[in-house]
Amino acid sequence: MADQKEMREVYVETLMSLVEEGKDIIVLEADLMRATGTTAFAKKYPERAINVGVAEADLVGVASGLSAGGKIPFAATFGCFASRRAYDQFFLSANYAHLNVKLVGTDPGVTAAYNGGTHMPFEDLTLMRVIPNLTIAEPPDAASLAAVTRIAAETDGCFYLRLQRKAAPQIYPDDETFELGRAKVLRRGKDVTLVALGTVMVNEALKAAASLAEEGIEATVIDAIWLAPLDEATILANSPSGRIVTCENHRVTGALGSAVAELIAEKAPGMRLARIGVAANLFGEVGTLEWLAERFELTAPHIAEAARKLMW
């Protein structure tokens, strides 16, 4: 996808546009400015780009103080550190304090690739999902990322955004409109519904739907975009088959699969569910994204197989 813009460039360009429009945005980094690509932002707006050094607790603490001082902070670091390392700061200083902190966790799941298990967030969404009123999004492509970043800047309250840094295949036209908490139906089919989250899984789900179609199985594909608030209405209304496969680049415990399981148990108890995601007993590992997707059974064939099993 050499012709596609990198996702981090989209993130940074969107933030720069927002500043130009008068939004009081401050970008914060913990010595990963070059990784997130916010060096471009820092060059243009040096007074609005803050590097706290390798200090994630302080990253989120300072962001919280900036928010209490009226700024709109976007703080980014690898997703593993944004969640595991700065969790109490994000929970208390930002969320419990009802502030307006946007926390960005980069390199979701297997996209951490060569950084390996230490850096591979398979639990960030689970940790974030239990924080009251926190909005959580994982936009899959450039257009949705730009829109979600803009929504985060324009909506008062804390957000956690999962950001793949590298380029992603285009799913939406540039002028597609997005709303907070609204999922997108990418394909409609009567036999099974694939609910996917994030770049890796939305694309694998679309591939799985194409291969299932060749076998005569018609799949609906939903891009959840928002883990919280989850678009329950769109998911239920577009699951006429009563069969759902959730697809997440994350451990299956506690995030998208769990959220849909809760939804089904409480509001649609007749439906059947299969969860594609990293098994509950596994930590991350090193490898290429492709090797890791295979290792953790996140690929289109794994999704298609789960869908077929639900058909039996």
Binding site: A57, V60, V62, S64, L66, A68, G70, Q89, L92, S93
Partner: peptide, 20 residues
């Protein structure tokens, strides 16, 4: 002016306020 209670966090928030 700021929510506190988990020790160690308030000084970061104060620094953020001062920075703003």
């Amino acid at each position: 002016d700021m929510t506190t209670g988990s020790l160690g966090q308030g000084l970061s928030a104060a620094a953020g306020l001062a920075l703003a």
